[in-house]
Design a protein around this nucleic acid. Structure first.
Lengths: 252, 252
DNA sequence: CGTTAGTTTGACGCGATTCAACCTTCGTGG
DNA sequence: CCACGAAGGTTGAATCGCGTCAAACTAACG
């Protein structure tokens, strides 16, 4: 029953370039395009677990691709209540679209040690000019992010605690699978019960009890932070996931 | 106390082109750019109040700009629970980003008679090639949509019923103000209590009671579907809105 | 003038929170 | 190598915000 938010990032075969892997699942990338994407990773910034590397209200110009690690995008209310907007996984962008206003509206916190690839805004423009196929892939990334967030809203607004947890597990599982970070229905969960509660709009106590119920029902097992989804079909039934889940996003 | 989801759309001076108005608030548009944006409105489709004009799971290729009216983007769970993802107001896009997958993941329902401007995907590409300034404005639109949805998630996850309602009123007020559809802290609310409940993840009964409490506290008044925010400062205090609200979005 | 959609109201119940312990694990420094 | 503190997990009891049910009311429309 223990969730272990271990900071050592050694789970599985970490993708060389999760972004390339993610986009390849969608479209065929030419060698030139792959080179360009790898070139985006020339710069590198490392962030220790526990650090906020984007802070609400502060200057935020350059954007990033997360190369490895887990991070959380969140907002804090004045009285300390926290809502997590989403989980950022390897290959995800932080600030993909041009922000010509100046400040961040959310904070981003590293839950494990993270490697970032800072991207100059000019590089994004370059994509639109020189790589039309990549440009539409980025558009897909945008739509996908929006869709994930929309599903998050549905989860928060109209699902029970039990359903929320199942739905989140499935989201993480599918997203990790796409970048080669989960296999055989197993993945490492790098966030605490407190994080889960702020993600799902519940209390830690209730998260704990619900997690217990999930394992008691034989749907999920957990040891040392590793989650195992024991019956995907029933889980998808419970979560009432759209068909197909996280693969086929269209509307923004 | 009556919310009147009147379908006659005659509130105030409807903007000729709400999109132009919205973008003008952000950047200076050249005559050429304004012409181009107006040109997007050549095609026109009308939809009656109550109609779903985008349906989850169905083909969805062309995108739209909403010229006039109110629409709701929502998702339905199998057992009938509904969560509204967001309110679509004049000048808003539906499906701005290129969707090279085929189907819609959400439904969109017109709450008033709506006028739509269908946009061929090619037009969006044209913007990126010929109008770099417009292209970044569209990027801003995307970021803004994401930020509104993120605030929606915070609302659903970590605010009380009372706060949710206040926060929503402020969101609508500010968005309508930007396109000239609200004045003197008043605007017409074109959705029912049922819609409010599915928007805020509450029951209609509780929405009603909370609305009653808001008016009793002298913060808001309502007659025939017209909302009046009587004390913006206190409302913003209650909603704990970020500074500045809905104007300065940066992170995606 | 009946029908339909939406609003209003009260009584009751439950899902989730709060509070307050206590326990376990792990990293750190003496 | 053990002592200690911090962070996170576990548990029960009491409480409350919000949901459910059910019925009456009101306005709009043909």
């Amino acid at each position: 029953m223990q969730i272990d938010p271990a900071n050592t990032w050694t789970d599985m075969n970490v993708a060389e370039n999760a972004l390339v892997q993610k986009l390849s699942a969608l479209i065929h990338l030419s060698a030139e395009e792959v080179d360009f994407l790898n070139g985006l990773h020339i710069n590198r910034a490392d962030v220790k677990a526990g650090c906020d590397f984007v802070s609400e209200g502060e200057e935020f110009r350059s954007s990033f691709v997360l190369r490895s690690g887990w991070a959380l995008r969140y907002r804090l209310l004045k009285d300390g209540r926290r809502q997590i907007i989403g989980v950022i996984l390897p290959g995800d962008f932080i600030g993909l679209n041009v922000n010509f206003r100046r400040t961040a509206t959310y904070s981003v916190c590293a839950k494990t040690d993270c490697a970032l690839a800072p991207i100059e805004p000019l590089r994004i423009l370059e994509i639109h000019q020189r790589f039309p196929v990549l440009a539409s892939a980025l558009s897909w990334v945008t739509v996908r992010e929006y869709s994930i967030l929309a599903e998050h809203a549905v989860r928060l607004g109209r699902r029970t605690a039990y359903e929320r947890l199942v739905h989140l597990m499935l989201e993480l599982y599918h997203r990790l699978e796409l970048i080669g970070l989960s296999e055989e229905h197993r993945f490492k969960l790098h966030i605490s019960q407190k994080d889960l509660s702020d993600l799902l709009g519940l209390s830690t106590v209730h998260i704990h009890r619900t997690l217990r119920r999930l394992t008691a029902d034989g749907l999920v097992s957990m040891e040392r932070g590793e989650i195992r989804l024991k019956d995907i079909e029933r889980l998808e039934e419970i979560a009432d996931t759209p068909e197909p889940f996280l693969e086929d996003f269209a509307v923004l």
